[in-house]
């Protein structure tokens, strides 16, 4: 039945994908369960918040500043064709707060922290450190996964609001400083067109992306097998799957919220 091979391959891939989605969901449910059981490991939580939040500050600021700057530059060229330069500020501000701030920040943190979570948990898995936690009657989901998820959900909105702000500053520097848009107009148009809900919805998205990137990173690490090569594979897949899920869920969330 050679002609069935392609179907088998597609079906097999689909089944594998379903299985993985199920396991991811199970890990999430377990995390929620263990989140509510004492002991509450605040020290581990703060450590992860420092790693995810403070540690990602530099790349977040750089990403925000350059995105805002280049966005101002590009939109200025477009808008100046029909004399709408005054809208550069508000356009950039809206795009940043609603989309680019949360999405780009989350993608950067996925590359930085999501990958590290997969690598760290993966190494702990292949060297039996996760088994050692089980043996010492400490649940590894509670000890390792819960603090990472909570820290990411808490810190992504914070990073995003920083990226939003720095991005608008970047746009201001380019728009007002380099391209000569009037300072007052730049600011007043932002205030005129931007609602508080633009910012808050962006932050809700960021929190959700934080959940995705940490859950995927922990999931790939937690179920690593196959030594050093397996850890490498888990790390790569955590970044790829995390990024894809962030981009895909961004569309769904945006469609639902705005």
């Amino acid at each position: 039945m050679g002609w069935l091979r392609p179907m088998e391959m597609v079906g097999g891939k689909f089944l594998h994908w379903l299985e993985e989605a199920g396991e991811l969901l199970l890990l999430f449910l377990q995390s929620v369960l263990w989140m509510m059981r004492p002991p509450f490991r605040l020290q581990l939580l703060f450590k992860q918040m420092e790693f995810v939040g403070v540690g990602s500050l530099g790349v977040t600021i750089l990403t925000g500043a350059f995105t805002g700057g280049v966005f101002a530059l590009q939109s200025y060229h477009g808008f100046s064709l029909f004399g709408a330069e005054s809208l550069v500020g508000s356009t950039v501000a809206l795009a940043l707060t609603r989309e680019l701030g949360p999405v780009l920040t989350s993608l950067m943190v996925t590359g930085r922290a999501g990958s590290a979570m997969a690598a760290e948990l993966g190494t702990m898995r292949v060297t039996e450190q996760i088994d050692a936690l089980y043996v010492m009657a400490v649940n590894p989901v509670q000890y390792l996964v819960v603090p990472r998820i909570l820290a990411s959900v808490a810190m992504l909105p914070v990073l995003t609001i920083i990226a939003d702000f720095v991005g608008i500053v970047g746009a201001y520097v380019v728009g007002v400083g380099l391209l000569g848009i009037n300072h007052g107009i730049f600011i007043s148009k932002i205030i005129e067109y931007m609602d508080f809900s633009d910012i808050s919805m962006g932050l809700v998205k960021a929190a959700f992306f934080g959940l995705i990137l940490s859950l995927v990173g922990c999931f790939k690490g937690f179920y690593t097998s196959g030594g050093a090569e397996g850890v490498g594979r888990a790390t790569t897949r955590a970044v790829v799957l995390g990024s894809v899920l962030i981009l895909a869920s961004d569309y769904v969330l945006t469609a639902m919220m705005f």
Binding site: E128, Q129, D131, A132, Y134, M136, A137, V138
Partner: peptide, 21 residues
């Protein structure tokens, strides 16, 4: 969760020690 109670009665030495690095 239930196993934790049982596991507290055990100690285990792993092949590569499995110390937290």
């Amino acid at each position: 969760h239930q196993l934790n109670g049982v596991r507290r009665r055990f100690g285990m030495l792993f092949q590569e020690a499995a110390l937290f690095d």
